[in-house]
């Protein structure tokens, strides 16, 4: 999908977009973006923008899919055809099937689905613009959408990407960095519980580098959590 570049991605300790290695892009978050959903949110990391919506808990059909002692979570991650440089043909491909699954797995440990037997919580992530780190951006949005839908949760979920470029460890990869990194790692966690619910890595790393990146990811998730928290609080606390 991605394009390779010959440009140096890190010059004098700065990234192409001027960031320092551990800096995230500008983060924007808002909730209640989609009125037909029970909960929704929109999150941007730089140009990467994800909407998330939650419908339910609602009745689940066909009936054989129902679990008598718990509700189920369904998750669809999708990229809009216009979200990338070359038009993406619409509908699920192998990449989005896999990402949908790992995102579902990132939330299953967090939700009290047993409070809603036989029902389904349907969640949707739409990437409307993709400039790297789309799945973690989607996870950050979905976490807030679930909370604002009133779905019982152990904690919020915060997620970020970290990686390595020209021997430098970096946080929040943009599209060019994503396509040209030596390695990238996606992490989602329950920030107040210190529990990791999504971990994916590709590219080559020593174990020591991996451990350093995981620690960077943890710190960054905690920062992201603070923004999620602030956004939800401001929205729901009402006027001071």
């Amino acid at each position: 999908m991605g394009k390779a570049t010959d440009k140096e991605l890190i010059v004098n300790g700065r990234r192409l977009d001027g960031r320092e290695p551990y800096h995230m892009r500008e983060i924007k978050m808002s909730v209640d973006e989609i009125s037909s959903a029970n909960g929704s949110a929109k999150v941007s990391f730089g140009k990467t923008t994800a909407y998330a919506s939650v419908h339910g808990p609602r009745s689940l059909f066909p009936k054989f899919l129902q679990e008598s002692d718990t509700g189920i979570l369904r998750c669809r991650y999708n990229m809009a055809p216009f979200s990338v440089d070359d038009r993406k043909s619409p509908g699920p491909d192998r990449r989005s099937v896999e990402i949908s699954k790992v995102i579902r797995r990132a939330f299953e440990p967090v939700l009290f689905l047993e409070d809603y037997p036989k029902s389904t919580v349907d969640s949707f992530i739409e990437i409307v613009e993709a400039d790297g780190s789309t799945r973690v951006t989607g996870i950050n949005a979905l976490s807030m959408a679930l909370a604002s839908a009133g779905i019982p949760m152990k904690d919020l979920v915060a997620a970020c990407s970290v990686g390595k470029i020209s021997d430098t460890l970096i946080v929040d990869l943009n599209g060019v960095e994503d396509n040209n990194s030596e390695s990238d790692v996606g992490v989602a966690m329950m920030p107040q519980k210190d529990i990791v619910t999504l971990l994916q890595m590709d590219g080559i790393l020593t174990k020591e580098e991996l451990v350093m990146l995981l620690n960077l990811a943890r710190e960054s998730c905690k920062k992201i959590y603070q923004i999620q928290k602030q956004t939800l609080m401001e929205k729901y606390r009402g006027a001071e």
Binding site: V102, R105, E108, P109, V110, S183, V185, M189, M190, K193, D194, I195, V196, T197, L198, L199, Q200, M201, D202, G203, I204, L205, T206, K207, L210, L214, R218
Partner: peptide, 19 residues
């Protein structure tokens, strides 16, 4: 001994300190 790909699976989370 370098690592080239990781994927967490399964329905539970993993404590950060266990990784």
């Amino acid at each position: 001994g370098k690592i080239c790909a990781i994927q967490k699976q399964g329905a539970s989370g993993i404590a950060f300190n266990d990784l």
